[in-house]
Amino acid sequence: MSGSETTKLIPFDRLTATAVAIDRPNVDTDQIIPARYLALPREEQVSHLFHDLRYRDDGAPREGFPLNEPTAAGAQILIAERNFACGSSREHAVTVLVDNGFRVFIAPSFGDIFNNNCFQNGALPIRLPEERIREMLDHLARRPDARITVDLDAQTVTGPDNWTQSFEIDSFRKQCLLTGSDDISLTLRHEPDIAAYERRAEAHADWL
């Protein structure tokens, strides 16, 4: 089949960067990018990350919102509370974060669809225990310029005081991220399996 060489993602192995904290639970993808921006071309969506939380009605930056702090510039890690990026399946929630420089999201839990969408875009969602997130947020409040290292191969997050926390990740997803390979090119190698499945299934369920 033509097109088996689909777009390669930028591989992810190790990252040391500053972090931004979104210190509230259940942040939904409507907050990450409101629906009214979804029909815009991707490059025009970039400036609308967290738009309504980030900007006042007159367009001025809202004081106190973490992304508006000077220390947020250059951050590539976002730390959040439970159920981050729940709600709508909009993949724009991942791409607008990625286009703003974020590659790693750390939270106690994520919306399932956002979690899957991350891997389609070379981004790494990391689940850590709530207590650990709390410590990281406290630390970040004191030292917003702290640099955090995420090592995918070793599956560790290391903070500035050299505390290290390991994290779990599916080995399948890990390999895809490390090599920057996308799902479709992998799946096309299973074309004979899919065709065989279809022959089998259609004999059993001929009404579909």
Partner: peptide, 22 residues
């Protein structure tokens, strides 16, 4: 279940999806 836009492309191309069993 709902999927993202990249996964829609994947289903269009392969009629399948990589999933971890919930």
């Amino acid at each position: 279940f709902g999927v993202g836009s990249s996964e829609v492309t994947h289903v269009l191309a392969t009629q399948s999806l990589w999933q971890r069993k919930p």
